[in-house]
């Protein structure tokens, strides 16, 4: 019985991290689908969301729900700003160069956060009271339930956005054929701005959800974000369900390898498995077969 309870505990912890990876991965994908680039500033949106939550709670004194929404909104704005100021002025369409450009922007964002908030680790309070509940034999913090619930909602809203709103449909149009989209008069610049806003918002959401568990610092998003990237790759970069599945799988794998193999080497297992998957099936497990 004990071992079953442990098992459920690991399942929950895996799903928690997995949800966060999935949110970040979705951010990577939205930008990738509309602009064809990997946007490394995604990792900093995560830290930035956490930072904004911290500041609005303690420096501004907002109540939790307002601070929470404010942080996500702020991260979305930051996303738009990055696209407008950092990426749009560049005239190149060479993907290698654009990837390096986002790396440069990411270095700048981390530098700014380091100056504004310092290098120290900070503690952020969870969304609601810290009293654990018992589910299926596992002891679960309310924050974890929030994480699972809000991820579900975010994925649902995203699916609705891309299926049912005209903006979302336009964005899918850009994804499948940018030149044609420009020809029929879609405003490509606005679409890019919106996709960065969504990416920023998703990153920010991931940040406000996970930092109460991990503690907060200016570079907390890097490792989380790279695992989000890994999740996106596992899921085939582009298919949303694949990416969510990629995130959850990565979270669970990590949790179980930490539990049953070695917690010191959990990053090694996570990235080791990723490398293996890349070697065997480079398109990820739900990716479309590409040459």
């Amino acid at each position: 019985m004990q071992s079953f309870n442990d098992f459920m505990q690991f399942v929950f912890s895996g799903l928690t991290n997995g949800s966060v990876y999935a949110l970040i991965a979705l951010g990577f994908c939205v930008v990738h689908n509309t602009m064809g680039i990997v946007n490394f500033t995604q990792v900093d949106f995560v830290s930035f969301g956490g930072m904004l939550l911290y500041t609005s709670l303690f420096a501004v004194g907002l109540p939790m729900p307002a601070a929470f929404l404010g942080a996500i909104f702020g991260a979305a704005l930051a996303g738009m700003l990055v696209e407008r100021v950092g990426i749009r002025p560049s005239k190149t369409d060479n993907h290698l160069v654009l990837i390096f450009l986002t790396i440069g922007l990411s270095i700048i964002l981390r530098g700014i956060m380091k100056i504004l908030w310092g290098k120290n680790r900070m503690a952020v309070p969870p969304l609601t009271a810290d009293k654990p509940v018992h589910i299926l034999g596992a002891t679960v913090l309310p924050q974890i339930i929030w994480i699972l619930l809000l991820t579900l909602i975010a994925v649902a809203v995203l699916a609705w956005f891309f299926r049912c709103t005209s903006m979302g449909l336009c964005m899918r149009g850009v994804a499948s054929n940018p030149t044609a989209a420009a020809l029929v008069g879609l405003n490509v610049n606005r679409i890019k701005a919106v996709s960065f806003a969504i990416a920023g918002g998703l990153g920010g959401l991931a940040g406000v959800l996970i930092t109460p568990i991990t503690t907060l610092s200016y570079d907390v998003g890097v490792l989380l974000g790279l695992k989000g990237f890994a999740a996106a790759i596992l899921g085939g970069f582009g298919s949303f369900p694949g990416v969510v599945l990629g995130g959850l799988t990565l979270g669970l794998l990590e949790s179980f390898s930490a539990a049953y193999f070695s917690s010191a080497y959990k990053d090694v297992t996570a990235f080791g498995i990723l490398l293996l998957v890349l070697f065997i099936k480079p398109q990820g497990f739900l990716g479309k077969g590409r040459h």
């Binding site: 950092g86 002025p89 560049s90 005239k91 190149t92 060479n94 160069v97 390096f100 450009l101 790396i103 440069g104 922007l105 990411s106 270095i107 700048i108 964002l109 981390r110 530098g111 700014i112 380091k114 100056i115």
Partner: peptide
Amino acid sequence: TYKDIIHGLILVVVLTVFPQ
């Protein structure tokens, strides 16, 4: 203190002006 920002800025400005 500004080291990172300067690194990043150089990278971004160079790539924006001279992609190569």
